[in-house]
Every structure is written in structure tokens, then in C-alpha cells.
Design a protein around this nucleic acid. Structure first.
Length: 529
DNA sequence: CGTGTCTGCCC
DNA sequence: ATTCTGC
DNA sequence: GCAGAATGGGCAGACACG
């Protein structure tokens, strides 16, 4: 018997109203207990809906974004009492259906499908349906809590369930298997991608040595796209960090992997990037033009060639390696592929070596470095603190020329700032990006007052202000911009300081930006094969 | 057929 | 992606 | 230490619209 969607909505209400982690886990495990083993599919659907669509359950998008959803909501009739109650399966299947449609008129059809769901939902159901579609659940349940709930429900050690989740990568499959009571499978499967291991931030060599014990592995960090390559049965497949299969977009990588391969089967982890005609790595934007391309790949291939450097291996010739220490995996990596496709590695036992490596590598055009513990396992989808990333950062003084009203917890504050530099050619100030990062809540409040005091005009979205407030910005790269008239935009801009001591005339200029852009073309270059 | 909007997915 | 906040 | 919230630039592709 299909379960009513209202049961899920009730669960969400309860989850939202408690902040206790334990309580949430109990609520979810009790909820799972209602499903018989023949209802495993519906339990899996419930899990997908429960953690929300943007939380990484469903890597394929649903092709419904805010615009479509707002239109569907606008079409709402007044609240009618639903004739036939929505079921969990039905909601999930409708979402699947709406997402899989293609062709002329789909946008209207999708909207109609959603309107229908929303119309038949009671008030509570509608609230949660909307949140599901918006991808904003705000009930404090993510994969971690669901995994703990499953452990409680199954009465199994948490570690076992965690291992299963890491390897399966998909929450719905995990729940389905759990409800069918067969959760012993923790072996990797070729051509089923697992979530890549993630890194935490480090801001100094000191911090690296606080968190990791020497010897520490250091690797140069390429500014490209994370790629997981599966090899077996003469087949090669390539997946992105979000587990999207991009094999068809990257025939050049497939070819190079085949050439360098020394093993029958393996799963490799690395970074893909483009090189120009001279073999020099291109800016990240160029790499994206290849990774994102599905049409006319052959044409793009002539212009931009993709390369890959591997830094890890989690499966080799039938054996899973992810629980083995990194030092061992590095040896396996050398057994699996030829040297030119392996990212370089140095071992550091003091802080100076870290600083030196950072400087050398960034001057060569790398994004920064990765510091890793040689003893650490590969923890799919986890940060875990075994890997640290350290990037070079640049900084500039810019002036705030406009600000947008915030939403949610930032309602009532001007929290997103338009940043401009002096246009030393055209005159005045020209925007090079926006930021909402770096200020504390208190500073947002103060900034809001300051900006309202110098407002030139009030718009629906915020205010345009006199260019008076100077902020110091940290960022990682100057990008070419097709949207800003200046032609440039700052990547990952965040506010480091409010410079009350500086005048707007003292901020950096467009020429400064251009200089940085030109200097980013790496002088020494990365060795690419 | 060209342009604009929306979405997903990279970072 | 990056940052801050709250549990 | 984890989860969540708020929101950045930019690319390709699919449709809508004129």
C-alpha cells in the first residue's frame, strides 16, 4: 500500500521543530520502520524527498528551478480539500516524470504537473512540497543524520552503514537495500562512481603542521575539474565530482589513459585541465568549455586539448584500496598508470618546505597545494581532515557601488555588494563582481545603515549608492567576463576588511586588474603529456 | 533563425 | 566555490 | 566538527519567443 505524502510532511514538521540530533535520528528510524520490505522503493523515494533535491541525492537535476516553480505556485487555486491524497511514490514519480520530459512545450507540461501536485496538497504538504522543489528543506537533516538513522533502524554498527553509503554513493539505493535488509555490500563496483574524497582549508603552513603529523605529502593543485576514471574489460569511463558521466565529452582523456594504462582494471582519481597549442594549461574557463560540451566535441577537440593528472587510486585489478593508507595507494598508482599521468609529490617535514612549495608551484601556474597524511584512508564524499588545501590568494581595494537585499536569515540587511574599481580609461567606477562573504552578522547590520545613508536610488532589489565605502577584497583569480562591461570579474571574492581609512579615489584600477589577468598566464608552465 | 531565459553543473 | 553561525 | 544558510562567475544545452 502506497503511503500518504502527508506522513512525510508530518515527519518533516517534527524534524523542523526539534534541534536535537538524537531526536531527529529516532524520528527517522521510526519512520523507516513503517516500511515493509516490499515497500523498499517507496522508502527510497521517501529518502530522496526527505533530504531534498539539492542535497546531492539526485545528481541529475529535475529541470525545475525557481522560475518554473514560482509560475506553478502562482497558478494555485485557493486551498481545496484534496479529493485523492498524494502518496509518497506518486510525488516522487511525478517529479521524475517532469524532469525526464523533453521537447517542445515541456516547460508548460512541467508546470502543469507541478501545479497539479500543489493543488492536491493540503497546507502542510504544500509547504514541504515547495521546499523539496526549491531544494531548501531547512529541517536539519542531511546525509549524515540519515545514515545514523539507518544504523539505528537496522541495529547495525554505524561504521558499517557509513562504509556502505560511501561505496554506494546514492542515498536512495542505500535505503532501498537497507529496507530489503541486505546491507553487506561494501565493495566498489567498476563503472559505478563513488563520491570523491574532499579536502579542508588551511591558511598557513603552521595550520598544516597543527593538523597533520610530518612527514606530510605535498602535491601541486591544478585548477581544473575533478575526474574519476574507471577502467575494466577494455572499457574506460570518466565521471565528474558530481558523478556525471562525461566519457563522451573527453575522448582525448580516454585515449591518453588507454595509452598510459598498465593494469587490467582500476579506479583512478585525478584532475582534468585543458592545454593550448603550446601545451600550456589554460584558464579554468577554457577547461569548462570542454568538460561541459556534449555537442560538436570533435570540433572543440582541435582547439582545446584535455589532459589529466592522477593523484589517487581506490581500486586495482580486483582489489579495493580505499581503506589502505595513501602511501600504499601511491605505490599502486604507479603500478596502474605510467608516470606522465601521475601528479607530482614531495614529502615535507618542516614548515619552510611547505611555504617554498607553495611559492614554486603558484609561480608555475598551479592553483596552490594539497597537503595529505600518508597514513590516511580514502574517505569518499568526506572531508575528514586528512587532506588540506592551501591556495594563493590575491587582494585588492575596491569600492561598493550598489547592494542587494538579503533573503532568509539575511532578510532586512543589504548583504550582497557590487564591487567596482577605478576605470582609468573610461572614467568613473566599473564593477568587477559581487560578494556576500566575509562579514559577520554585526558587520552586515552596520553596513546596511552605512549604505542606506549614502543611497542614490532605491530599487526593488536593493540600493545604488555613492561610491564611498572602500573594502579590501580577497579573491583567487581574475576571469574574463562576458557580462561585466569592464570585461573582467573576480573569482571567489570575499571581504577581508572595511577600509574606513581609504578614499574611493585610492582603490585599485582596471589597469591593475588587467595586469593581474596577464600575469596569470603561467610563466614556467605545468609539464603536460 | 537569432536572441533571451532557465537550468544544471563545474569551480 | 567560500564564509559565518548554531548546535 | 558537522550541518546549514546565503549566495558568487561562467559555460553548454534546451526551450520559448519573435
Amino acid at each position: 500500500m502506497p503511503r500518504p505524502f502527508s506522513e512525510l510532511a508530518d515527519l518533516c514538521e517534527k524534524l523542523e521543530s526539534t534541534t536535537s540530533r538524537k531526536e531527529k535520528i529516532k524520528l527517522i528510524s521510526d519512520f523507516l520502520g513503517k516500511f515493509g520490505s516490499e515497500e523498499a522503493d517507496e522508502a527510497a523515494a521517501a529518502a530522496n524527498l526527505l533530504v531534498g533535491l539539492s542535497s546531492g541525492v539526485r545528481k541529475l537535476g529535475i529541470n525545475v528551478g525557481p522560475a518554473t516553480l514560482y509560475r506553478a505556485l502562482r497558478d494555485q487555486q485557493s486551498v481545496l480539500s484534496p479529493l485523492t491524497p498524494l502518496t509518497i511514490s506518486e510525488v516522487w514519480e511525478t517529479i521524475e516524470k517532469a524532469s525526464s520530459l523533453t521537447g517542445k512545450g515541456v516547460i508548460d507540461t512541467r508546470k502543469a504537473l507541478l501545479s497539479n501536485l500543489l493543488n492536491r496538497a493540503g497546507e502542510k504538504e504544500r509547504k514541504w512540497l515547495t521546499r523539496i522543489l526549491m531544494g531548501e528543506m531547512r529541517h536539519g537533516v542531511s546525509v549524515g543524520i540519515l545514515v545514523e538513522s539507518l544504523a539505528k533502524y537496522l541495529n547495525m554498527p554505524l561504521e558499517k552503514v557509513k562504509a556502505a553509503e560511501m561505496v554506494l554513493g546514492r542515498l536512495d539505493t542505500l535505503v532501498k537495500n537497507a529496507v530489503k535488509n541486505r546491507l553487506q555490500e561494501t565493495r566498489l563496483k567498476l563503472f559505478i562512481p563513488v563520491k570523491p574524497m574532499l579536502a579542508e582549508y588551511a591558511y598557513s603552513p603552521d595550520e598544516i603542521f597543527e593538523k597533520l603529523k610530518p612527514p606530510i605529502y605535498l602535491e601541486p593543485k591544478i585548477d581544473g575539474v575533478r575526474l574519476q576514471v574507471h577502467v575494466g574489460d577494455g572499457m574506460v569511463k570518466v565521471f565528474t565530482r558530481g558523478l556525471k558521466d562525461v566519457t563522451e565529452s573527453v575522448p582525448d582523456i580516454v585515449k591518453r589513459v588507454r595509452q598510459a594504462l598498465k593494469a587490467d582494471s582500476c579506479i583512478l582519481d585525478g584532475e582534468g585541465y585543458c592545454v593550448d597549442e603550446n601545451g600550456r594549461p589554460t584558464p579554468f574557463q577554457e577547461t569548462m568549455r570542454r568538460i561541459g560540451r556534449e555537442k560538436n566535441v570533435d570540433e572543440a577537440l582541435k582547439e582545446l586539448s584535455l589532459r589529466i593528472k592522477f593523484f589517487d587510486i581506490i581500486h586495482l585489478n580486483g582489489e579495493d584500496l580505499w581503506q589502505k593508507p595513501l602511501e600504499e595507494r601511491r605505490r599502486s598508482l604507479e603500478e596502474a598508470v605510467a608516470q606522465p599521468l601521475i601528479n607530482s609529490l614531495t614529502v615535507a617535514d618542516n614548515r619552510d618546505m611547505v611555504q617554498e612549495a607553495l611559492e614554486t608551484w603558484t609561480s608555475m601556474g598551479y592553483e596552490g597545494l594539497m597537503a595529505k597524511s600518508p597514513k590516511s584512508p580514502y574517505t569518499p564524499g568526506r572531508r575528514g581532515g586528512y587532506w588540506l588545501k592551501m591556495k594563493k590568494a590575491l587582494s585588492l581595494d575596491v569600492v561598493v557601488v550598489a547592494a542587494e537585499w538579503g533573503h532568509g536569515r539575511r532578510r532586512g540587511w543589504l548583504s550582497n555588494y557590487h564591487l567596482a574599481v577605478l576605470d582609468d580609461r573610461g572614467g568613473g567606477f566599473t564593477p568587477v563582481g559581487k560578494t556576500f562573504k566575509g562579514l559577520t552578522d554585526d558587520e552586515f547590520r552596520k553596513m546596511t545603515q552605512l549604505l542606506l545613508g549614502i543611497a542614490k536610488s532605491h530599487e526593488e532589489w536593493g540600493v545604488v549608492v555613492e561610491p564611498r565605502i572602500v573594502v579590501e577584497i580577497e579573491f583567487n583569480e581574475v576571469q574574463r567576463s562576458p557580462t561585466y562591461p569592464s570585461g573582467y570579474a573576480l573569482r571567489f571574492a570575499r571581504i577581508k576588511a572595511i577600509r574606513t581609512d581609504k578614499q574611493p579615489e585610492e582603490v585599485n584600477t582596471l589597469s591593475d586588474i588587467e595586469k593581474i589577468y596577464n600575469s596569470q598566464r603561467n610563466p614556467l608552465g605545468i609539464q603536460s603529456y
